[in-house]
């Protein structure tokens, strides 16, 4: 299969994922027992007269055949009309766009941090494979993967915010403070520090594992032996020949990690009361604000798909072997 057909197949696959996500959003509230009115129109059907109920049902389009409802739903999604919040009455696009920058700030910073640390540690671990250091750091990474994200965040708050008083424990900016310029940047950085730290630490293991395996496989290649045989110093072999090649598959992992980190913000932002998309989703679930929950779910899906697309388009650019 040539690269172009492969690319088309991938795109088709992402389209299927999107269709599945939208269909889930459409089907779940309609499949649940009881009247879908509470889930879709946000009203208590039990307290209404039959006439009122009929009016609300017609208003929400629930008296139409399912196929028509489904197509109408798609039409609204494609025109980026996600509906209104039950609780606040605000259009969902507006809510999402207001929260998106904060989540991007957290996830992109965490990706940069965890990428750098994970790649460096993974390469070093593979270089010293089988050593005490390698086994030690590998075990530590397995332990990190077993750590509940929200719990680590709570511990950081107890330690850095409460005991030491170094960093704020909630929000994205100091409430009520009217800051501008550098003071504002410093305030934002201070508030983002702990969530970013938590998210970064928990993203490191996946990058580390990928880099370690990738480096190990490159180390077994013939051209590495050639490089060693012609008398290059181990450091030079490592820097110029091994790490550069080993980084290639890791970029894919990194891009996919971005999608993961996006989803992970639901718990992290909840712990830190951070006003991003994850917190929006959590609040929507707690308040039974279903349209907002569905809207955030779609945004998360689109984010993951974009991260995958990024990985797909980045890889051939970095690795000349995959070019046709």
């Amino acid at each position: 299969m040539n690269a172009r057909r492969l690319g088309l197949a991938r795109l088709g696959q992402y389209a299927i994922v999107l269709v599945v996500a939208v269909t889930l959003n459409f089907a779940l509230p309609r499949l649940m027992p009881g009247s879908p009115l509470a889930l879709i129109a946000g009203v208590e059907a039990g307290e209404m007269t039959p006439e009122e109920r009929a009016a609300v049902t017609a208003d929400a389009g629930l008296d139409e055949p399912l196929v028509v409802q489904y197509l109408t739903y798609w039409k609204s999604i494609l025109t980026l009309d996600f509906g209104y919040s039950f609780r606040q009455g605000t259009p969902i696009e507006e809510l999402v766009l207001g929260r998106l920058p904060w989540t991007l700030l957290l996830t992109l910073t965490a990706l940069a941090v965890s990428g750098t640390v994970g790649i460096a540690l993974g390469a070093f671990s593979a270089w010293r494979r089988g050593s005490r250091w390698d086994v030690g750091s590998l075990s530590f990474m397995i332990a990190l993967e077993s750590t509940p994200q929200f719990w680590l965040g709570m511990l950081f708050i107890a330690l850095f915010s409460v005991s030491l008083g170094w960093l704020p424990s909630f929000g994205a900016t100091t409430a009520g403070a009217d800051l501008s310029g550098l003071a504002w940047v410093a305030d934002v950085a201070e508030h983002a520090a702990l969530p970013v730290l938590t998210l970064s630490i928990l993203s490191i293991p996946a990058v580390y594992m990928a880099m370690r395996y990738s480096t190990l496989s490159v180390l077994g290649e013939d051209y590495i032996r050639t490089a060693q045989a012609k008398g290059l110093r181990p450091r030079a072999v490592m820097m110029h020949h091994v790490v550069r090649t080993a980084l290639l598959p890791v970029t894919t992992v990194l891009a996919l990690r971005l999608g993961w980190a996006f989803g992970g913000t639901v718990v992290i932002e909840t712990v830190f009361s951070y006003p991003g998309l994850g917190r929006l989703m959590y609040d929507a679930v707690s308040a039974r604000d279903y349209p907002v929950m569905q809207g955030t779910f779609l945004v998360f899906t689109i984010a993951v798909l974009l991260a995958n697309l990024l990985a797909d388009s980045l890889y051939p650019r970095l690795d000349p072997r995959t070019r046709v």
């Binding site: 718990v267 989703m281 039974r288 929950m293 993951v304």
Partner: peptide, 15 residues
């Protein structure tokens, strides 16, 4: 590919 945690939450919220 579907976002893991958000999907988990959506399913749990409805079920």
């Amino acid at each position: 590919i579907l976002p893991f945690l958000p999907l988990l939450i959506v399913l749990a919220a409805y079920l």
